[in-house]
Design a protein around this nucleic acid. Structure first.
Lengths: 195, 195
DNA sequence: GTCTATACACAGATAGAC
DNA sequence: GTCTATCTGTGTATAGAC
């Protein structure tokens, strides 16, 4: 049922795979064109330059996350239940889109100032939406108050983001299972006795 | 009191900074020699090639961690207290040595097969020592038993490793403070009501 | 241990035909 | 939309003098 993928889409998907595996600077446009079965020059019909690919990948990954957040934000839920739904969905999106997502997280530094600023803003927008939900849950007494909201948020993203670098789609654990595990640790911790 | 740093040491420290900021492939040997006030060719008196720098940085970072683990492992402590000491020390070492540590975590992929294998083994050795302590704490009932030890360990490293990419030495929070926060979240979770 | 000079492979990108 | 051919800058690395 999947429609024929355009060359432009295959280009971005191929680039995401290569960029995650070998890094942006470590990937040559010739490797990319080779993967697509094209000549190097043919790439430039679809893109304006190598950096253009990276920029589109980053923005695409972040829009994908933003859509996921939209879908899962249910105002009928309590803040803490919203947060749980958000964390699970974010983990799953990040893992299933790991080529783009890992590239976005790591290779932002390779973008020009103007483009990097744009990507960072889009990323921070997503983070802020999560932080707002955490703040709402905190004001209802559902989140511990001895840690600044900012660091609660960062701890959550720590927990979720790093998984992208070791989780594999053909590994022993499904994305949804891992999402549940990470949420459990974030919510309740791993130690039984309170320390 | 710090002894005069040899050119070889300055080379490695400078490379770590550049590699973290711009990536391994994105850093040129000319930038490095420029930073040191040397000609490009002069580097090759100290190293056999660019990849040699990366390899030494990775191994150095991991040895540094291993020494930290040695220092903090006190057999008189209970497993859960050992784990706490371990987590705090690991966080602090990783943050204070973030140039080398971030490079090691991200740029392993750029090493040749043989060297990458060696680095991965050294890294896994450190991880295994932590996992062994978690397993010991678990068998004393101090760690929750509904998550496989393997994933408890990975969750801990998720939490600690990702901090390297946003924490800054001149920021608003000290490494030791952040270490405490992350341990709190790992140990007790961030949610007050049990979910 | 650092220098000058240079080799040479390969990168990203463009021109213009088909 | 893809091709062949090619430009030009820059990368890592070496040779050999000082």
């Amino acid at each position: 049922m999947k429609p024929e993928e355009s060359t432009g889409d295959r280009l971005l998907a191929g680039a995401a795979t290569l960029f995650r595996q070998k890094g942006y600077a470590g990937t040559t446009t010739r490797e990319l064109s080779g993967l697509l079965g094209l000549q190097n020059a043919s790439l430039y019909h679809h893109i304006s330059g190598k950096e253009d690919i990276l920029f589109r990948l980053c923005m695409g990954a972040l829009e994908h996350v933003a859509e996921g957040i939209d879908q899962v934000m249910d105002p009928r839920l309590s803040p803490i239940d919203q947060l749980r739904a958000l964390a699970l969905r974010y983990t799953q999106i990040a893992l299933e889109d790991r080529d783009r997502h890992a590239t976005m997280l790591i290779e932002i530094r390779a973008l020009s100032d103007a483009r990097r600023t744009e990507v960072v803003e889009a990323r921070d927008k997503n983070v802020r939406r999560v932080q707002d939900v955490i703040a709402a849950a905190l004001s209802e007494g559902e989140i511990r108050q001895d840690i600044d909201v900012k660091y609660v948020t960062l701890a959550l993203f720590n927990l979720l983001n790093w998984s992208i670098f070791w989780w594999r789609p053909d590994g022993e654990i499904e994305a949804s299972e891992l999402a549940e595990i990470l949420w459990k640790v974030f919510a309740d911790g791993a130690v039984t006795s309170r320390t």
